[in-house]
Design a protein around this nucleic acid. Structure first.
Lengths: 219, 219
DNA sequence: CTACCTTGTTAGATTTGTCTAACAAAATTG
DNA sequence: CAATTTTGTTAGACAAATCTAACAAGGTAG
């Protein structure tokens, strides 16, 4: 069974994996906020457990077993976040820290019961998919708001970043998942977008913000 | 801040403390399932944090600071157990293992919210008092069923032991907190008790069981 | 292509929580 | 009270997860 530390490395590896499923030691060190030698020794440990493939001087690659393990931890994290929001009344900006701890609990029934109580949700409070209990992750292809054109109507569906600061920024603008935005115009110079949505007749969103907003196009 | 290991030692120390608040190294080693040298080195660590008083060859004594710390962990444990039973539909025999993990979560709001959702309960599913958020524990003086006499009517109020096996035994007899028992007779030879309660007209409870049942006398 | 910078590795140390073996103090008991 | 048993301590080792210092491999850029 993975230690809490190992679980955290697996989660980071899963999140950092690119198209080739590769992760560099330095990336992982940055993500985990530890030194490279620490990562070096940890990837050797993870390899012994068959969670990844490691060859000297090459990026590491999660095995299918490692991917499943990681997805199941992410499942616990996202189920917890959803439970905290839907069943316990927390704001979406408060749940990450708590879920970061709850995800390490070993009690399948606890998470099954959460899942059941919520009616088997498929996304978490930030729009990220909740892996199923076999560790399968549903791929959703949303568009970034920064790639949308003036005139389009879109629905805010997910976020690429869920930092407390960003979530509080969105709260301040009444932006939440499901909000329907009409794009009035897009500024060529700084790529900011002017849009309207319920109770907001003219809100400007910077490129930096738009990049982090994932949307479904309505028309 | 206490590590998870330190938290577990504090909890055990709190539970083992006798009238003089003393705990022997050997008792603690047995409770924690570690060797005496391990306890010896841990109590020195705990002393450095002012959680207990240690002198060579003497039993250790929790300081007020240590007692408060322990009570607050026990609070999290018991709130969690109650939440699992009342809000998530778990049986009282299923919650200890889960609470044992949840109690180490550092997120005051999480436990405050549980408390609030349940309407600030004062006892856990096994009848043990839930310490308040200042670490104060309400003392309740129940009687053991083994000290009751034939003819008395009592209400099952708490348990001195909450092992899964014992709880499953009680489930099998439809015994739960609040059950009103009329004591028909008490056998002098083996101290077993014959009693009646709703849907059970003649149930015999051994001394071993009676000792673990704490009751309030009705008349 | 050589020199430098970035990335990764090795070696060795540290902390935490654990162990066993050996010994010392305290308690019990004949 | 002396002998034995129980309880507690010390010393030294080990695994996990971390670090720094030193070095090596690979990539980049004049």
């Amino acid at each position: 069974m993975a230690s809490q530390t190992e679980e955290n490395y697996l989660k980071s590896l899963f999140n950092l994996a690119n198209e080739k499923n590769e992760v560099n030691i330095s990336e992982l060190a940055a993500q985990m906020q530890v030194s490279m030698p620490t990562v070096n020794s940890m990837v050797k440990t993870l390899q012994k457990n068959d969670w990844l493939i490691y060859e000297k001087y090459k990026p590491v690659i999660l095995t299918p077993k490692g991917k499943k393990e990681a997805a199941l931890i992410i499942r616990k994290h996202r189920l917890t976040e959803m439970f905290l929001v839907n069943k316990m009344g927390f704001g979406w900006e408060e749940v990450h820290e708590i879920a970061e701890q709850v995800e390490h609990i070993h009690a399948p029934k606890f998470f099954e019961r959460m899942d059941e109580m919520m009616g088997f949700p498929t996304i978490d409070p930030h729009g990220s998919p909740i892996p199923d209990n076999q560790g399968r992750v549903q791929e959703i292809n949303y568009l970034s708001l920064s790639d949308c054109k003036a005139g389009q109507t879109v629905i805010l569906a997910a976020l690429t970043n869920s930092s407390t600061e960003f979530l509080e920024f969105l709260n301040g603008r009444d932006l939440s998942l499901g909000t329907e935005l009409k794009i009035i115009s897009k500024e060529a110079y700084d790529k900011s977008i002017v849009c309207t949505y319920p109770n907001h007749s003219k809100e400007t969103l910077s490129e930096k913000v738009c990049e982090k907003l994932l949307v479904k196009v309505v028309e």
